[in-house]
């Protein structure tokens, strides 16, 4: 391995190390202090405790916000998957006029600042006269989750050889059976992965949600308001730790499924 220790290697090594520290250190600190027996998040260490985790259950406002976030994210994910897969199909298989506008829409969540998107949606909802509520939150989240799903599924469909469907027909399938037995299994991993990521985007959304939620509360909004009272800090640490672990698990799962589905031919974008 000595040959690898070139300046290039060390450059890559340090870049990676710095990135890892930047990304993982806050998470490690967060989780560590969620077990610290003190309301102040600083050293010295005052003893190990799990009481903050127990206290989560004693906060109905927190539980309510988690519950809201959960079902909002589930609805958003379901709707976005349906619309996103249809959009991906259109993008990957057909050429038509107005494609450019479509491509523009699809790229919105990747290039437009969340703040601008949030303000735009707020203006839109108030102009049209829709009462701000969890319903507007759902609409807002769908608006950026559909492009996410569409991009992920379209990239898979792009590599899909239309002759595979033709071969299925040739070997005795009707059109629907050909889709069920060949097309769907091949793009399913991309759809599942897209669903998991869409769920995370919705569950985590703060900026856009903040503009369009009115008097309701989702989890990120609850954290935002709870932060004003320092005594809440340990509980926030505890619940955030749980969520970080669950979401990272989901993302690794999504990437694992996506890679397995690609038959190992596709490079991972995450690891």
């Amino acid at each position: 391995m000595k040959a690898l220790r070139t300046p290039k290697f060390w450059f890559a090594f340090y870049t990676y190390a710095v990135m890892a520290i930047l990304i993982y250190m806050p998470i490690v600190i967060l989780i560590t202090f969620s077990f610290n027996d003190s309301t102040i998040m600083s050293l010295p260490w005052s003893g190990f405790t799990t009481k903050w985790y127990a206290k989560i259950l004693a906060r109905p406002d927190l539980l309510k916000s988690l519950w809201n976030s959960l079902w909002v994210a589930l609805i958003v994910t379901a709707v976005s998957l349906v619309l996103g897969v249809l959009a991906a199909n259109a993008m990957a298989r057909y050429r038509y006029k107005g494609r450019i506008f479509f491509t523009g829409y699809i790229s919105i969540p990747f290039v437009m600042p969340w703040l601008i998107l949030g303000i735009a949606l707020l203006v839109f909802f108030t102009r049209v006269g829709i009462q701000l509520s969890l319903f507007t939150v759902i609409l807002a989240h769908i608006s950026f989750d559909v492009p996410l799903v569409a991009v992920l599924v379209a990239s898979r469909l792009h590599q899909f050889d239309p002759n595979l469907e033709a071969a299925a027909r040739d070997l005795g399938c009707g059109p629907l059976e050909a889709f069920r037995l060949v097309t769907f299994p091949i793009i399913a991993p991309a759809i599942i992965a897209a669903g998991i990521l869409a769920f995370n985007w919705s569950f985590d959304a703060f900026v856009v949600t903040h503009f369009v939620i009115g008097q309701q509360v989702t989890f990120p909004i609850w954290v935002w308001s709870a932060l004003r009272f320092p005594k809440n800090l340990p509980i926030i640490n505890a619940v955030s730790s749980i969520i970080v672990v669950v979401e990272m698990g989901l993302i690794f799962l999504a990437e694992w499924i996506r890679r397995r589905g690609a038959g190992g031919e596709e490079e991972s974008i995450l690891f």
């Binding site: 299925a168 070997l171 399938c173």
Partner: peptide, 28 residues
């Protein structure tokens, strides 16, 4: 329609089903 014809095709780029193993491809 193709599924009703007593005709089969070997495609220009094979078009083997990537999610099925050799046995299941042939048994399709």
């Amino acid at each position: 329609p193709p599924e009703k014809r007593d005709v089969n095709i070997v495609f220009q780029n094979y078009a083997l089903f990537p999610h099925l193993n050799v046995y299941d491809n042939v048994a399709f």
